[in-house]
Design a protein around this nucleic acid. Structure first.
Lengths: 148, 148
DNA sequence: CTACAACCTATAGCCACTAGAGCTTCAAGA
DNA sequence: TCTTGAAGCTCTAGTGGCTATAGGTTGTAG
């Protein structure tokens, strides 16, 4: 028989990791915090995963990549496990997260403007006493009014 | 004598906290990790801060507000303490941080686009089985190619 | 049968705080 | 002077989402 690895229905944790792009340690962590159900074990006590696990982990990974908190993912998984439920909660989680992301962007943009201003004034080579970076940080009169 | 508090040269930790907008616990933490020097103590072992502490803590707060890591702030403070040194390092830290902030913004913007797409398709009220949010997360074929 | 990669558990560390328990000190009013 | 209560003190543990290490066991190719 050839190494039919990609078609195996039951795979060890390393293969699951490769297949989903999630590290082995992270997979065990997800199991520990209850995102991923405990899989069957081999005779020697090693984890053996099936197709359902691959799909569930892909779901988790995708949600994490989108920045959802583990707690939100727990809820989203619960919803996806009970397809009859209305999905208002899922929408609320996504919309809430979108709001957070937008806030973060806004905050980072104001940081970016401030940092760019500071960093362009001083491009190094000057004595620290006259450095615009140090000065800007020391001079709290300039920036504390538009709270970044 | 009236309560000349705002002009006192030696203040307890609570007043320092009020004056800088940094929480009492955080001030003690900064002292513990060596950002803020240990102040004098009252006879009863309570911290008493002077003008120099206020300025230093304001510097730290401003830098933290701008997102600098504590480790970077340590270096920036060292530079500002030795005004003769050239400030190339300060410039490098600021420029490096600006780069990180810009990367974060870029990543968040791609998240925002994806989340907005997902969240607008499904605005709730639908059964979870048909919910675009759940579906988008489950369907890894759609998004894994443009790595967010 | 042996070698060695891959697996296992348990624990500690990361960052920058934050919260709590259980105690002591300070300052204002009676 | 005494009492009260806010504010201070130290020490420890918890947060989120992993990541790393130590020290052992299992699976499998040659």
């Amino acid at each position: 028989m050839p190494p039919t690895k990609p078609l195996d229905r039951v795979v060890p944790i390393g293969t699951l990791a490769e297949r989903t792009g999630v590290k082995v340690e992270t997979i065990r962590y997800y199991e520990q915090v209850g995102l991923l159900p405990e899989p069957e074990r081999s005779e020697g006590n090693q984890r053996r995963y099936g197709r359902a696990h691959v799909e569930r982990l892909a779901f988790i990974k995708h949600a994490r990549d989108l920045g959802f908190a583990v707690e939100s993912i727990r809820t989203l998984l619960r919803l996806s496990d009970t397809p009859g439920m209305p999905c208002d909660e899922a929408h609320a989680i996504a919309a809430g997260h979108l709001g957070e992301v937008r806030e973060k962007i806004a905050r980072l943009r104001s940081l970016e403007a401030e940092l760019a201003r500071i960093a362009t004034v001083c491009s190094g080579g000057v004595a620290a006493a006259d450095c615009a970076v140090i000065e800007a940080l020391a001079d709290h009169g300039r920036c504390e009014h538009h709270g970044h």
